[in-house]
C-alpha cells in the first residue's frame, strides 16, 4: 500500500490563498422548501405530539376498555379533539403571539411559507389521528363512518375556526387564554350534548353539520388572511 500512500501525499500543493473568503462569499446552496418544512418539525412543541399520541391512545383504548355504548366513544373523543384543534391553532399562530412575525417576515422563507410549513406538518399529524379515530369508531361502534366523521370533525373545525379568529383579533397571550376558554366551552358542550341529555338525533346532526361547515369556512378565511393580507397588520401590534 505504500504506493497509494505516496500518491496521496506527493501532490500536496502550497496553501490556497483565498479559500475562506471565496467560500464565504459564494452563494452556498440554500434549503429547498421541502427541506425547510422538515426543519420546522423540531420547532413544533413536544406537547403537540404528546397530546396527539394521547388522544389516539384514548380512542384506541376506549374500544377495548369500555363496553360498546353508541355515543360514549364519540363524546370521549369530542371532549379531547377540541384541545387538539386548539393546540394546532396556537402552534400556527406562535409567530404573532410571541412577536416574532416581523423578523420572520423579512426572511427568505417568509411568514406565509412558515405558516404553510406548520400547517403541513400539523395537518398531516391531525389528519392521521382523526382518520384513525374515525375509522376505529366507524368500525367498532354502530354509528358508521359518516356519523363518526361528523361528530369528530365538528368540534375540531369549530374550535379551529374560533381559535384562529380569536388569535387574529386579540394580540398575544391574551388571545391564547381566550381561545382556551372557548375551547373548554366547546368541549363541555360536546360532552353535554352527547353524554347526558337525550336530544333528538336529527337536531344534533343538523347542528353538527352547520357548526362543522361554519368551522371550515372560518378556518379557510383565517388561513387565507394569514397567508396574504396579514402583513398589513404588523406594527400596529406590539
Amino acid at each position: 500500500m505504500k504506493i497509494e500512500k505516496a500518491l496521496r501525499s506527493a501532490f500536496t500543493p502550497p496553501e490556497p490563498r483565498n479559500k475562506d473568503k471565496f467560500i464565504d462569499s459564494m452563494r452556498y446552496p440554500k434549503l429547498s422548501y421541502s427541506e425547510f418544512v422538515l426543519s420546522q418539525i423540531c420547532y413544533i412543541r413536544k406537547r403537540v405530539w404528546l397530546f396527539s399520541a394521547a388522544v389516539l391512545l384514548v380512542a384506541i383504548s376506549a374500544v377495548y376498555v369500555i363496553p360498546q355504548n353508541e355515543m360514549y366513544i364519540v363524546w370521549v373523543a369530542s371532549a379531547l379533539i377540541p384541545f387538539l384543534a386548539l393546540m394546532t391553532a396556537t402552534e400556527i399562530s406562535r409567530s404573532d403571539i410571541f412577536g416574532m412575525s416581523e423578523i420572520e417576515a423579512g426572511c427568505r422563507y417568509s411568514l406565509p411559507q412558515l405558516i404553510g410549513a406548520r400547517m403541513i406538518i400539523l395537518g398531516v399529524c391531525n389528519f392521521t389521528v382523526i382518520s384513525a379515530i374515525v375509522v376505529i369508531f366507524g368500525f367498532f361502534s354502530p354509528l358508521g363512518i359518516m356519523k363518526a366523521a361528523l361528530y369528530i370533525l365538528t368540534p375540531y373545525m369549530t374550535v379551529n375556526g374560533i381559535s384562529l379568529l380569536v388569535l387574529d383579533k386579540v394580540i398575544g397571550l391574551e388571545g391564547v387564554y381566550i381561545s382556551v376558554a372557548a375551547t373548554i366551552g366547546v368541549s363541555l358542550a360536546g360532552v353535554f350534548i352527547f353524554g347526558r341529555v337525550p336530544f333528538d338525533m336529527r337536531f344534533v346532526n343538523a347542528l353538527c353539520t352547520v357548526l362543522c361547515a361554519g368551522g371550515v369556512i372560518m378556518t379557510v378565511i383565517q388561513i387565507e388572511k394569514i397567508m396574504s393580507g396579514r402583513n398589513e397588520c404588523y406594527g400596529i401590534k406590539n
Binding site: F11, T12, P13, P16, D20, I23, M26, Y28
Partner: peptide, 18 residues
C-alpha cells in the same frame, strides 16, 4: 454534501497537479 471547504481543497489539488 455541503463540505465546500473540503471539496475546494480537492479540486485545488487536482488543478495544481494539472
Amino acid at each position: 454534501m455541503n463540505d465546500l471547504a473540503g471539496i475546494y481543497d480537492k479540486i485545488y489539488r487536482y488543478c495544481f497537479y494539472k
